[in-house]
């Protein structure tokens, strides 16, 4: 039996974890080897001393569990209020940061839109879905109704395909020409829609 194996068996014996088979092995080793027996006796004595030392120097010293628990129970009430205040303060701080961020985004967009109306145009890469703004008399009205003689001008942005705009402008000009012709031929049928009183 090796020294390590012997120490393991002695340890198991001291900790009352040894099985009957292991106990037999240990007894046999102790009988035939005086050195093993000496080691066993020394470790057994050390175990007793260790147990007493820990009990005397650690377990029996200091305040009792009941006293410490009662103090902790009272301290809990004292700690709880500052803890709650701190928790509330941190939540308020986070909410303030979030609100500030949202306000900042809103203001940034608002300023951008005010300064440069072309930004109203969607920066979509698809020219088919691009939205065009209007300028002049129709500015700010969104979708407009065409009336004879009314000039409609689209102002392009860098993001929209210029060829598409040219085509659109051309088609609008053609439509205007057709409307003008119709108005000239039938002046009674197609007149500019009069605006209601008081409206600019």
């Amino acid at each position: 039996m090796t020294q390590q194996m012997l120490e393991i068996l002695i340890g198991k014996f001291l900790d009352a974890e040894i099985s009957p088979a292991e106990k037999q092995m240990l007894d046999a080793a102790l009988e035939r080897d005086q050195q093993a027996k000496d080691l066993f006796n020394q470790l057994k004595e050390l175990d007793t001393l260790n147990q007493q030392a820990v009990t005397s120097e650690v377990i029996e010293k200091g305040r009792s569990a009941e006293d410490i628990f009662e103090d902790a129970w009272h301290e809990r009430k004292r700690i709880r209020l500052p803890y709650m205040i701190t928790a509330m303060a941190s939540r308020k701080f986070a909410a303030g940061i979030a609100a500030g961020l949202l306000l900042g985004i809103f203001l940034f967009n608002h300023i951008q839109l005010t300064r440069n109306p072309r930004r109203l145009v969607s920066p979509s890469t698809s020219t088919q879905s691009a939205v065009l703004g209007t300028q002049g008399s129709n500015q700010g009205q969104g979708s407009t109704q065409l009336t004879p003689g009314q000039t409609i001008r689209f102002f392009p942005t860098r993001d929209i395909n210029s060829e598409l705009l040219i085509q659109l402008n051309y088609q609008i000009q053609q439509m205007q020409k057709q409307l003008d012709e119709l108005r000239d031929n039938q002046p009674g049928a197609l007149k500019p829609i009069p605006k209601p009183d008081g409206e600019d």
Binding site: V58, K61, G62, I68, D71, A72, W73, E75, R76, I79
Partner: peptide, 24 residues
């Protein structure tokens, strides 16, 4: 606790902190 600190007063302080933390 005694395996981490050796001073008895510190052991008691730590045990009280443990109690407070368990309660909370």
């Amino acid at each position: 606790v005694a395996s981490v600190v050796q001073n008895q007063n510190d052991i008691d302080d730590i045990l009280q902190n443990i109690c407070v933390t368990v309660i909370q």
